Amino acid sequence: MLRQELQTYFDRVYPFSKIDTEHTLGGQVHIRFELGGEELENGTEERVKQSTDRALTIFNETFTDPTHEIFILIYEYQGENIFNATNNYLHKQFPDDRFTKFYIQLETVNTRYFTTDENGNDVLEKDEVRIIIGKLSVKDINVKNILNGIANTEMGFDPGIDQRIFFFDPTTDKAFQMYDDRGCYVWSDKADKIRDIYIKRSDWIVEYHRPEIEEYFKL
């Protein structure tokens, strides 16, 4: 089953990553890139275009072989979202005959937020989330539409994508997530696996996080 296959991969390469706890996803080494930038005004097509173009460039430099099969992990939180984005648009960015074979299941997952129990202890909140897991070649994913949809969402443009989506290449141990128009992450288990992206796209690194990121790549 795809869920088990992905979690087994996490256990081997990213041992702290758990599918049922989204905020644990990540690698031992990460780079945070700025996409929209402070110079471009919110709610403008120019900002969406730059965010999409930069994200697509970084994605293509992370997953350089279009024939590689990569994992796609999607979290769909239930109920209407504040941006009125529909879930179906993201689903359509994968071939129909492949999407029907994805793992799709409602699960109770841990969130990043805490409540306090009767003893005063912090307890992770839980939420019902539809988890979708697929595995297919990079070339079979309409990546540009996905990244543009993510960039659109908070800017109020259509079509928007409000789901959380992560990409993992089990061959190269590189991963990518664009969280919104502001930025994206690339990560791996070892610095040398993503050093080329760090060097090539250094100008796009979020300045606030640069000292932490540069520590990973010291020789």
Rank of each mutant, 00 (worst) to 15 (best):
G120C: 10
Y179L: 03
V48W: 06
R182Y: 04
Y103N: 02
A191H: 11
K190R: 14
I19L: 15
D53M: 02
A175L: 02
I74Y: 02
K135Q: 15
E61D: 14
N60A: 05
E41M: 12
T57K: 06
P211Y: 05
Q163V: 11
G120P: 10
N81Q: 10
D173Y: 07
K174A: 04
S188Y: 05
E41C: 02
K190P: 00
E41T: 14
A55K: 05
F33W: 02
E69W: 08
Q105L: 04
T8N: 15
G79S: 14
F176R: 06
T64E: 15
F94H: 07
T108H: 13
K101D: 14
Y103H: 06
D140G: 05
G26N: 09
G37Y: 02
D65T: 07
K18Y: 14
D65E: 11
D173H: 15
E215T: 02
I141Q: 08
P159D: 13
E38K: 11
E125P: 00
P211C: 05
N42R: 13
K49S: 08
Q4G: 03
I58R: 03
T57D: 04
E46G: 01
F176N: 08
K101E: 14
I205K: 01
T108M: 13
D20Q: 12
I165E: 05
Q78C: 03
W187R: 02
T52K: 09
D20P: 00
G37K: 03
V143C: 08
S17D: 05
Y77D: 13
F114M: 12
L124F: 15
T64L: 09
T172L: 09
N88D: 15
N110V: 03
K200P: 00
I165K: 09
L35F: 02
A85F: 01
E118M: 11
E39V: 08
I31Y: 03
S137K: 15
L35Y: 01
T44Q: 09
F59G: 05
D65K: 10
E41S: 11
T153W: 10
V143R: 11
L25N: 09
I194C: 10
D162I: 01
I194S: 11
E46S: 03
I132E: 14
R182I: 01
I161P: 06
V129F: 07
I74D: 12
Q105A: 07
R3P: 00
D140Y: 07
Q50N: 01
K200T: 10
V109K: 12
L219G: 04
T100A: 12
Y89K: 13
L147C: 09
L40M: 07
F167N: 05
E45T: 13
L25Y: 09
Y208E: 15
R54F: 06
T67M: 11
H30D: 08
Q177E: 08
E80P: 06
E207C: 00
E125A: 02
Y14C: 06
D11F: 04
L25I: 15
R201I: 00
E5L: 12
K135G: 04
D158E: 15
W204G: 01
E207W: 01
L2M: 11
K174G: 02
K200F: 01
T52S: 09
D96H: 07
G149T: 05
D181V: 04
E107L: 14
S137N: 12
R32A: 07
L147F: 11
R112M: 12
S51G: 10
S202P: 00
F157G: 05
T67D: 15
I104E: 08
S17F: 04
Q50C: 01
T172S: 13
T108E: 15
Q28V: 03
N121C: 01
R164W: 12
V123F: 07
S202W: 03
G134P: 07
